[in-house]
Design a binder for these strands. Structure first.
Lengths: 207, 207
DNA sequence: CCAAAAGTGTTGTTCTTACACCCATGT
DNA sequence: ACATGGGTGTAAGAACAACACTTTTGG
């Protein structure tokens, strides 16, 4: 964006104002669909940000002055979980960054992303969100890699498999995936139905 | 509140507008302190509510018209955890209700409380929030009762004790509480320091 | 001495952790 | 035939779930 002599081209999280007649959830969906072509995606609110000093650096203040925008903005953050092979980016100004290689971001967007990432890391341990990031039919190694990526850790493959296969809602298919690697890999699905039936017993607390 | 012929006296969650120069967290604290006398309290944001049809019943709409308030309000909800014996209510119009015996509430406040309660039930299993609801020195039965109240379940006392005493951050004191019951009860404290050191290993996932 | 809450043990089963090599296939 | 990712087993220790009675005190 060009404001007289100063060019402002910081990266920002995709966002927009909430429209008069839409819910927050609908706004989040609309914004996602503006940039990405897909049928459906998991989205979840993680936090609202409304500190009065959210906009502190001079570039951001200049930007807001030029647009005559009220400097007190309340943003409600939503995370979206997208299966990498099921969508297409729609917009040339949009770019993906690995979580540990973020560019400099405008406003408090670095903090927001950090908040979202920590939220996701906790949530993925206690709810079956991980399957939102995998194709319907997945291999155990794909599942492990997804966890390792989000949690930023390495896991023992044998113990991981044992742990996962104990879950009744991870269902063995009579099908293997070929081609992707040398040895064909066994496919599984996540059964939401079985999960929902089992989950009521869970009250193992860790606290 | 009296508006001409219609008296509106629905219960509402305590709340207020966020002031120009305060953070959301500061606003939550200010609102709590307005009604309750205490030194400090745990507070945490749980969700933002901003649907355009949040105000749907005629009493609420009438109320907003009379006050000339914009019917689109975004509320950011905070839960507070208060130790029952450490504060005093400050305001005659304030009243406590057991979670399962709520009165009729104005606006969407019943939904908000439901949301907050479910949030708390999940959170208490994975973070040591429970200690915010107990005195510094507590008995194991008090701890169990606190969990049972929040989770709305019964637990086996022997298994509960074994589970809790395995935690290194539950520290045995050389002190008993007398008077409260017939047999004096052993006191414990929660060590936040020990907890923080241990917690990094936790990555038992339940998903 | 009795009412009331505090506190205790065992067993069978399941889960966790640590650890290193063979398998099936495509090229 | 070899490179590549897929897949496997065991043993020791920890945690879990189910289950009923004894202890200590105040009144």
């Amino acid at each position: 964006m060009n404001l007289g002599e100063t060019t402002i081209d910081d990266w920002m999280i995709t966002g927009d104002y909430v429209q008069k007649s839409e819910t927050l959830r609908e706004a989040a969906k609309r914004i996602l669909k503006r940039y990405v072509i897909l049928t459906q995606a998991y989205q979840e609110q993680f936090n609202a940000f409304g500190d009065p000093d959210r906009i502190k650096n001079e570039k951001d203040l200049l930007w807001m002055q030029k647009l005559d925008v009220n400097p007190r903005i309340l943003s409600v953050g939503y995370i979206s979980l997208l299966t990498a092979n099921l969508f297409e980016i729609n917009d040339e100004n949009l770019e993906w960054f690995p979580i540990h290689q973020l560019p400099e971001l405008g406003f408090d967007h670095t903090d927001i992303i950090k908040n979202a990432y920590e939220y996701l890391q906790k949530k993925v341990l206690i709810e079956p969100l991980i399957f939102e990031l995998l194709p319907d039919k997945f291999t155990l190694n794909e599942l492990q890699i997804a966890f390792e990526a989000i949690l930023d850790i390495k896991m023992d493959n044998r113990n991981f498999r044992k742990k996962v296969l104990r879950k009744k809602y991870i269902v063995l298919l009579d099908e293997k995936r070929k081609g992707n690697s040398k040895k064909p890999a066994q496919l599984y699905i996540f059964s939401k139905d079985i999960y929902n039936k089992i989950v009521e017993k869970h009250q193992l607390f860790i606290f």
